[in-house]
Design a protein around this nucleic acid. Structure first.
Length: 677
RNA sequence: GCUGCUGUAGCUCAGUGGUAGAGCACUUCCUUGGUAAGGAAGAGGUCAUGAGUUCAAGUCUCAUCAGCAGCUCCA
């Protein structure tokens, strides 16, 4: 006998061999129809599988109201998609086909390339399979039999997976629906009919087998499914909304920036309007830096290769740097000697010849500034800040918009501190990032605490220092009171890091602000200060950048505000609109007063109807329109129109100036793009 | 870097191997209109670049460059 405890607290005695579906039928046929999958003692369970023989179990019957069942539905749909593909193509090798946050995918190896033209065919076949309403049947088999079955089916990738990934499993499960059978852990909905009509193939991509770039590349089909067509339509609509907020689209429309083939991919041209946003952000943070005791410095865009050999950047990150700059005479001499390219590379590596590097990081320059003076413990902390532009040779497939570029400006700073000062300085840095994100109304973020991977090879320095640094970071993050996850293996090669990861409107996550502790570089450069004991000590360094990269930050910010910047950031804060020619000369007087008051203002004196001028200003996302007509000429007023709230009525020019100034000073955020994808 | 897709006017996009198209934007003229589109005319192109097939290429083939989706990487 089996005792089943239901969520409402009731208990039932059952015969051996009953399934969750039988229990549901017993409770009511409506529930039995609605149930998609069961949960036994917290573990998902197929609806039609026999329950355990005896004892007492907690049973939940999950319907589409339960979030877990959507994942199951998606996984089942992945099987149906795979079945459809196998019906349409010969010799399909199955790889993995999991559910994802927004849908599912399946990776295949097949000889002919799939294209988007195949999508309708596959979808038609999937609809047929759904109509066939075949049950998903679980088959548990011993290991040897599973191997034999996969071999018989010609599924070599699955064979490999059983032999490597599932080496310790004695029993393996397969799922079958119709003629399709696949090695799979489960669980699944009862029948293919449960998938309904709410599915759609979305995109096609390459993916490596087991994520290994050295292995064969598979074809990945992305798709999604919802419980019904309406939810699918709503999801597709959200995708479309998100696309309209895409910073690459808005950046062009609002004339913020340009990435030009003739200049180079991944190299951003900031246009005047985008430059305003960037400059305002920089001024904003400069204000806070002054308050926190930072000093600003300027350093060049290149440095000697030897500098980066010392720092370790050149050897560690060679593949993602622009190639070194070598003077012509040296190159000519080497060419005359018959030096090959690989010999040249070796000479560069070994330091036999020197050259310059476009700087991939600002720290070595700042370190040399620190080292340029004799330092006492009384001078510390030394906090050197710079909007420093760095260059990295990102892989071509990674480039995109402002978020992944090859030249970008960090709002960088390096703090040289004593061991004792470290916790307070980390806390100060974290506080700064929090102020930045808070001011901009970016609430959707988390902290990633990047720690050393215990088995990792890439790290330099003593384990004891790593432990100290990691402990200091952890303490500071805990004190900040923001959700964080500790992630081993995510540290920089020189120390642990605290990254602020912001989620954008399409649901992607971007690393923006970062704070990193570094015991290594000060030692590599043999930095010293004189302690109170009159002996030399090595400072600890903190790298930090609250925005991270100005390019990426502004990119994410554009999407965050859907291009509608708050007044203090808006490239065009006000637009003055005349009702007709008769108010133009008055309009020009008002314009002058507003310019004198240092607003960023544009004017529209054209012989157009007011409605048309307003429409254009609305579409250009100008925060405030100032309308002047003959009534305003008489009374010396302007009529203020708010982009969000519409007409605010006429007011004296001085009153409008005071109101707008107050909003700028408060850095008020009145509207952000609505959240979840 | 890898896989697939894409590249036509400032923008969004049509275009069947045979004379280069539309809407919006732009310029000029008419219109003087109080809170989301007044009207007319005009100008705008090395069809990404380079090779090839063809009597003939925006259209077919190949290469290069660039963009998009994803994979891999990311100090």
């Amino acid at each position: 006998m089996l005792t089943i405890a239901l969520p409402d607290g009731s208990r039932r005695e059952c015969q051996v061999g009953v399934s969750a579906h039988d229990v549901a039928m017993d409770i009511g046929p409506g529930l039995a129809r609605a149930a998609l999958v069961a949960e036994i003692d917290g573990e998902l369970w197929d609806l039609h599988a026999p329950l355990p023989d005896k004892g007492e179990v907690h049973l939940r019957l999950l319907t589409k109201a339960d979030s877990e069942s959507l994942q199951v539905l998606r996984h089942s749909c992945a099987h149906v998609m795979a079945q459809a593909v196998m019906r349409l193509h010969e010799g399909v090798q199955l790889a993995f086909g999991p559910a994802t946050e927004t849908g599912f995918y399946y990776d295949f190896h097949l000889d002919c390339p799939l294209t988007e033209d195949d999508f309708p065919k596959i979808e038609v076949e999937m609809r047929k399979i759904v109509k066939e309403n075949a049950p998903f049947e679980r088959i548990d088999v011993p290991r040897a039999e599973a191997l034999a079955l996969c071999k018989e089916l010609g599924q070599n990738l699955k064979v490999e997976h059983i032999e490597t990934g599932l080496a310790d499993q004695q029993t393996l499960s397969f799922y079958r629906q119709g003629e399709f059978i696949d090695l799979c852990r489960g669980r699944h909905v009862p029948t293919t009919g449960h998938l309904g009509k709410g599915f759609k193939l979305l995109s096609l991509a390459g993916a490596y087998w087991k994520g290994d770039a050295a292995r064969e590349q598979l074809q990945r089909l992305y798709a999604t499914v919802f419980f019904d067509k309406k939810e699918l339509a709503a999801y597709l609509d959200r995708l479309e909304q998100a696309r309209r907020r895409d910073h690459r689209v808005l950046g062009k429309k609002l004339e913020l920036f340009e990435i030009d083939d003739r200049v180079g991919s991944g190299l951003v041209l900031w246009k005047p309007r985008g430059a305003v946003v960037r400059e305002e952000l920089q001024n904003f943070i400069l204000y806070h830096l002054k308050r926190q005791g930072y000093s600003q410095v300027f350093t060049p865009h290149v440095g000697k290769l030897e500098l980066y050999r010392t720092s370790g950047h050149f050897p560690y990150y060679q593949d993602s740097q622009f190639p070194p700059l070598i003077d012509r005479d040296s190159l000519r001499r080497l060419a005359d000697e018959g030096c090959s390219c690989s010999e040249l590379a070796n000479l560069l590596n070994d330091g036999e010849i020197d050259g310059y590097l476009l700087k991939p990081m600002n720290c070595p320059h700042h370190i040399r500034i620190f080292a340029s003076e004799k330092r006492s413990y009384r001078d510390l902390p030394v906090r050197l800040a710079e909007f420093g532009t760095v260059y990295r040779w990102e892989q071509s497939g990674e480039l995109g918009g402002l978020t992944r570029v090859r030249g970008f400006t960090q709002d960088d700073a390096h703090l040289f501190v004593t061991e004792e000062q470290l916790p307070a300085e980390i806390a100060g840095c974290l506080e700064l990032v929090k102020i930045v994100l808070g001011t901009l109304g970016m609430e959707n973020y988390r902290i990633r605490l990047g720690l050393r991977d215990p088995d990792g090879q890439k790290y330099v320095g003593e384990p004891q220092q790593w432990e100290q640094a990691e402990a200091a970071c952890k303490q500071a993050v805990e004190a900040l009171g923001v959700d964080f996850s500790a992630e081993p293996g995510e540290a920089a090669f020189y120390g642990p890091k605290i990254d602020f990861v912001v989620r954008d409107v399409i649901g992607r996550e971007w690393q923006l602000g970062t704070v990193q502790v570094d015991y290594q570089l000060p030692q590599r450069f043999a930095l010293q200060y004189t302690g109170s004991d009159n002996r030399p000590h090595c400072p600890v360094m903190v790298h930090r950048a609250p925005f991270g990269s100005m390019e990426r930050f502004v990119g994410v910010l554009i999407e965050h505000f859907a291009g509608a910047f708050p007044l203090w950031l808006a490239p065009e804060q006000l637009r003055l609109l005349t009702v007709s020619d008769r108010s133009e000369s008055y309009g020009r007087q008002v314009e002058k007063r507003l310019r004198d008051a240092e607003f960023r203002i544009a004017t529209d004196y054209r012989g157009q109807k007011l409605g048309a001028k307003i429409r254009e200003a609305q579409l250009d996302l100008v925060p405030y329109m100032l309308v002047v007509g003959e009534k305003d000429v008489e009374k010396g007023t302007v009529s203020v129109r708010d982009r969000i709230d519409g007409d605010l009525g006429a007011m004296p020019v001085d009153e409008a100036i005071a109101k707008l100034r107050a909003e700028i000073a408060a850095k008020t955020v009145r509207q952000v793009a609505s959240g979840e994808p």
